[in-house]
């Protein structure tokens, strides 16, 4: 049983693509597509890695990240943030909010796989 990754993303096609890529590499991919209760989902699963989209229905990815970092159980969980808005200030906001990694869509499959792998290496 591989490590668990929680993907919080609202675009079905992107969920499908990432699940395919990571699953083939042996990851246990869980998904959540709503911003409002994304934190509760993470709290319940306590995944090894979280992949978090910035633009989510109901709540912004930055807000969710802040909640995660504020939580004792999740504070050290590596978080990879994905955004479709390729602006510089988004990257800065993500780093300030405590994102472990930041990636702009569209990404290459190899790149996201490599990044996720590195993030769980102690």
């Amino acid at each position: 049983m591989g490590k668990q990754v929680l993907l919080i993303e609202d675009e079905p096609n992107i969920i499908e693509a990432i699940r395919f890529i990571l699953s083939r590499d042996g990851w246990d991919v869980r998904t959540h597509s709503n911003g409002l209760d994304a934190f509760e989902a993470a709290r319940a699963r306590l995944p090894d890695v979280i992949i978090l989209d910035v633009m989510l229905p109901g709540k912004s990815g930055f807000d969710i990240l802040a909640e995660i970092r504020a939580d004792a159980a999740l504070a050290d969980t590596p978080v990879l943030m994905l955004t479709a808005r390729g602006q510089k200030k988004d990257r800065e906001m993500a780093e300030r909010a405590g994102a472990s990694h930041y990636m702009t869509k569209p990404f290459s499959n190899a790149e996201i796989l490599e990044t996720v792998r590195q993030m769980v290496v102690p």
Binding site: E11, I14, A17, A84, P106, F107, S108, N109, A110
Partner: peptide, 24 residues
């Protein structure tokens, strides 16, 4: 601009990811 970027990048993400899957 963010929105256009988002609106353009979101489909392009899917297209790129799946075309890479199909290719690789």
């Amino acid at each position: 601009l963010s929105q256009v970027s988002h609106e353009l990048r979101t489909p392009m993400t899917s297209i790129r990811a799946f075309s890479e899957i199909l290719r690789d």
